[in-house]
Design a protein around this nucleic acid. Sequence first.
DNA 1: AATGAATGAGTGTTCATTCAT
DNA 2: TATGAATGAACACTCATTCAT
Lengths: 204, 204, 204, 204
Amino acid sequence: MASDSGLAATVDRTPRTERGRRTLRAILDAAAIEFGTRGFHDSSIVGITARAGVALGSFYTYFESKDALFRALVRDMSAQVGVVGAAAAKGAADTLSGERQILASFIGFARAHKELYRIIDEAEFVDPASYRQHYESAAARIQARLEAGAASGELRAGTGQIEAWAIMGMNVFLGLRYGVMDEALDPGEIAEAANMLLRKGLTR
Amino acid sequence: MASDSGLAATVDRTPRTERGRRTLRAILDAAAIEFGTRGFHDSSIVGITARAGVALGSFYTYFESKDALFRALVRDMSAQVGVVGAAAAKGAADTLSGERQILASFIGFARAHKELYRIIDEAEFVDPASYRQHYESAAARIQARLEAGAASGELRAGTGQIEAWAIMGMNVFLGLRYGVMDEALDPGEIAEAANMLLRKGLTR
Amino acid sequence: MASDSGLAATVDRTPRTERGRRTLRAILDAAAIEFGTRGFHDSSIVGITARAGVALGSFYTYFESKDALFRALVRDMSAQVGVVGAAAAKGAADTLSGERQILASFIGFARAHKELYRIIDEAEFVDPASYRQHYESAAARIQARLEAGAASGELRAGTGQIEAWAIMGMNVFLGLRYGVMDEALDPGEIAEAANMLLRKGLTR
Amino acid sequence: MASDSGLAATVDRTPRTERGRRTLRAILDAAAIEFGTRGFHDSSIVGITARAGVALGSFYTYFESKDALFRALVRDMSAQVGVVGAAAAKGAADTLSGERQILASFIGFARAHKELYRIIDEAEFVDPASYRQHYESAAARIQARLEAGAASGELRAGTGQIEAWAIMGMNVFLGLRYGVMDEALDPGEIAEAANMLLRKGLTR
DNA sequence: AATGAATGAGTGTTCATTCAT
DNA sequence: TATGAATGAACACTCATTCAT
């Protein structure tokens, strides 16, 4: 479930042997599931290592602490969200269709990674710096795209951080509602509805 | 910090004496601070009762458990948000100005109740039913307002749950950013920027 | 359920008013039920006073402590067993029929006072002196009857403490088995079987 | 003090290392002493582990709970009583001498395991199922021996459960009086006195 | 005499972390 | 590297007892 692109960078001790790499991967996958389903505090190292099929003590070969593991996971998920968004925006005809594609792909990502929300949300308590960093950089990316759109004349000028946070909020809650809580609707449809809001607002 | 309007209803055992009412109030205020600053798991009953200036055992005169206290707090905060929003919308010229006033007042509320976000967010882990309920009813209230606006011809038709969740997401994140993280900007100014998004979107 | 003959003597503070006597009686009755069904440690003063329908604090108007109440109950039950036995032996044709009548009536008593065993047994832990005293005086009474029977030529000589404890053990376990655990059989029938053991032993 | 024959079977988690086996044994021995001298409720895990010389937490490596440990001990003691009785009856000339030898050996066993009574008695409150089971199977064993004796013509026919419980009661109380409370008399002498009761009753 | 809120010592249990093997 | 036993701080919760009213 946890794709660990870039995790190497956040892990405490990089394994030298192939066997070590497998153990690390097993721990990370198990941790993503545990943290995602039970939350940080109700997850235990015993539970994670049991699920990973490794001995309790082996955990500390790879991570300094329960917190360190959680932080690694948070940073990894946060990075993935950025990567996925950037990929989705690629080749978009214009800024607004880019935003639409980003939201659609984000909802899909949330469906594939149900643990995303619980891990990011719990970071507010366990690793506040990462939590803040996660949202600030996501907002900064949006803001940059809005400004580029304004510069090219596609969008109105004068937008900034406020609009960026507003759009991020929309995306996050639509991902929660239609990605995690209930998968009935088509992500493209949701993204289109949200996009229309961005194009023309609510007025007739 | 914790205004306990309506808390009587959610408390486990209503005190019969004046002294009892003072003790209960002290516990609730202390709990809101503790939960809000340290989070549910890092808050302890000893810590809460010490801050409240009452004996440890007195806690259990009023609440069945740590969870029960937390739930009472979550439900109370959730209810307050609704009450504040309804009050803010009162006397608005039209639906959209109503939304603007609601957001402005919500940001003010968040500033006055910095614990709001941490308590609601942690409910995802401690009291999932309340968490879901909180957002679902907030979205339902928005959706109802949109539909009324459409019925009166003020807003375009065809909006529904998706737009409601999108607007809620905007509000929540603007409250987080400009209510809790940083109070530099004027709530009215933020609400106006968000409202323009709802009125005309991002296009020129 | 708890007949409190003689309890006045063991109670901590004798009430002076009629209202007080009613409260005391309510506490004692409630305590016998609680101690008998939940055991000493799982019984609580709150539970007892709640069952008695009086306020928690009122308990200490009548008893010094939970232990004191328990001790009063143990001594009372112990005394009642002696009284019942003496009454049953009255008017018996000879020593052995007296023993038979005593056992039959004891089984009846156990049926009417299911709490008897749990209270006496738990005294081993809560009030060891009473526990020991209870059995020692019961055994002494039996021994005295045997010696009287030997003196009159009805029973063989040479019996003493050992036989007394053996007979007491029989009675206690028959009361447990056929008084408390299961009430299917007639007490007279059981007493007769035990009595035949005392008359002729097990041999043909 | 606690011989742990067969305890392996009742223990929650069997240790895999020698060190583990030593720790478990230490805990069991300490527990038998604590439970036997202070009773279940006044014994504490801290007390038991302190006496065993291991850390508090180590307790939970081997037992799920205080109750589970107690249950293991009860079942073990109960089994031991059966084993000791069976061994004592071996090679007896006839049923009645078998009973005499069983009682004598039981009194010896009680002297060597003073904790026996308090542990079995407290099982009435802590583990009622085991308590009942203990006495029911002991009685069933006696009853089977009586019936075999009747079948062989040695004993009179018509005896059954009542006589079995009567004899068990005798044995239990003689063990209490002459094994636990006071060791002055010779077990053989006591067993002989009780046996005479079984042979000829009380009459001349 | 009655009430019920207040007190705080005590205890079972959890679990991150350490460490000997 | 891997293992799993050992450690002990921490904490929620209980409840007998006290006390102000």
